[in-house]
């Protein structure tokens, strides 16, 4: 009888949208949401990357034309965005691994900001390398 009654009750479950419902949430939740977002972005990049590599099979003209496009400022800006995603996902992922193993659980916010400082430094160097050098 209880089960029958329950079947009538809707469950307010946000599903994957709940991952990104960061309003009023704390740092760990925001980091979780960004990790998901950057993870999805990196998967998308991987697919695009494989599609681009398939151009090699179409001959040198096609590939050379793509390389010209890849050197354009707009494309280099996409590389910079990719770098930001990689750095965030990688270094926050390191935090998740450490905390997930019980290391620094109650210092996870300090760990996050420390690793993000490292990410920012690496990003500045990397972006400078992409856009200036």
């Amino acid at each position: 009888m209880l089960q029958e009654t329950r079947a009538l009750h809707p469950v307010r479950r946000r599903g994957w949208k709940g991952w990104f419902a960061v309003r009023k949430r704390h740092l760990g939740y925001v980091a979780f949401a960004l990790n998901r977002l950057t993870g999805l972005g990196l998967v998308l990049y991987l697919i695009i990357h494989l599609v681009v590599l398939s151009m090699l099979a179409r001959g040198p003209e096609t590939w050379d034309a793509f390389i010209e496009l890849a050197k354009s400022p707009a494309f280099l800006l996409l590389d910079v965005i990719l770098l930001a995603g990689i750095l965030f996902h990688g270094l926050n992922g390191l935090r998740v691994i450490l905390v997930g193993l019980g290391i620094g659980v109650h210092r996870h916010k300090e760990l996050f900001w420390g690793l993000m400082l490292l990410a920012a430094i690496l990003f500045i160097f990397g972006a400078w390398g992409f856009l200036v050098v």
């Binding site: 760990g28 939740y29 990790n35 997930g100």
Partner: peptide, 10 residues
Amino acid sequence: RCHVALECSE
């Protein structure tokens, strides 16, 4: 399954 959002503790 936990992904360390840690909002539970908050």
